Computed example of a mutant assay.
Amino acid sequence: MMSIVNYLGCNFLLPASDPESDNEIIVGDFFSDDEMRAEVHKHLSAKYICEVTSSQHGSIWFNKYYKQDYPKGHEEGQQIFKSLCAFLDQHLASGDYCELYTCWVGDESEEPEYKDCINLHDFDIDKIEVLEKSLLVINK
C-alpha cells in the first residue's frame, strides 16, 4: 500500500515523540531511512529532517481535489495541520522557519511541484494545500 509521508525540515533537532504519548502530532522516522531523508534534503535548506504525522489520522493531506472527493478527510487534514502549527509554535523561535515536504513513500527524489510560504500566525487554511510533491515553508 502506498503511503503519504510528511517530512519536516528544521534548523534544530525536534525531540522524537514517545510512542505512548497522547500528543496529536508525533515526530520520528516512520517510513523513511537515512537515504530517503538525504533525498528530501536536496529540496530543503533546513539542517535537520524528520517525519511528522498525526497519532489519530496519519499523514497530513488536504487540497482542492481531496476536498471534492473526501470532504471529511480534507477537514481532518486541515485540523492536523493546525495542530502541527500549534506544535511548531512551541518549538520555533521568532524569525525562524521550517519546511514541510510531502510525497508518496519512494518519491523522495521528486522535485516539489507545488510551493508556498505561510506565516505561522497569519494564514488562510483554505488557501493552502498539502499534497504530493508539495513544499510549504512555514515562517514564525
Rank of each mutant, 00 (worst) to 15 (best):
K127F: 01
N119H: 13
I25Y: 08
S32H: 03
W104D: 07
S32F: 12
D124S: 04
F30Q: 09
D89H: 03
S55Q: 10
V5M: 12
R37V: 07
N63A: 01
E35D: 15
G95N: 00
W61R: 05
Q56E: 12
L13T: 12
F31H: 15
C85G: 02
I60P: 08
W104M: 11
G95E: 00
M36C: 00
P112D: 07
D29A: 15
E111T: 01
K67G: 02
I25W: 07
I49R: 00
N63G: 04
K140D: 06
Y66E: 01
R37C: 04
S32W: 09
E113C: 01
I125H: 04
E35P: 03
I80L: 09
F87H: 11
S45K: 12
E113L: 13
S94T: 01
L135V: 08
Q56S: 12
Q56D: 11
K133F: 03
I4G: 06
D33W: 04
G9R: 12
I138G: 00
K140R: 15
L44C: 15
D116T: 10
D126L: 10
Y7L: 07
D122V: 03
M1N: 15
E75T: 10
D34R: 11
C117K: 11
L135A: 03
D69Y: 14
L14F: 05
T102L: 03
D96C: 10
G9W: 10
D18C: 14
S45M: 03
I49N: 05
V105A: 12
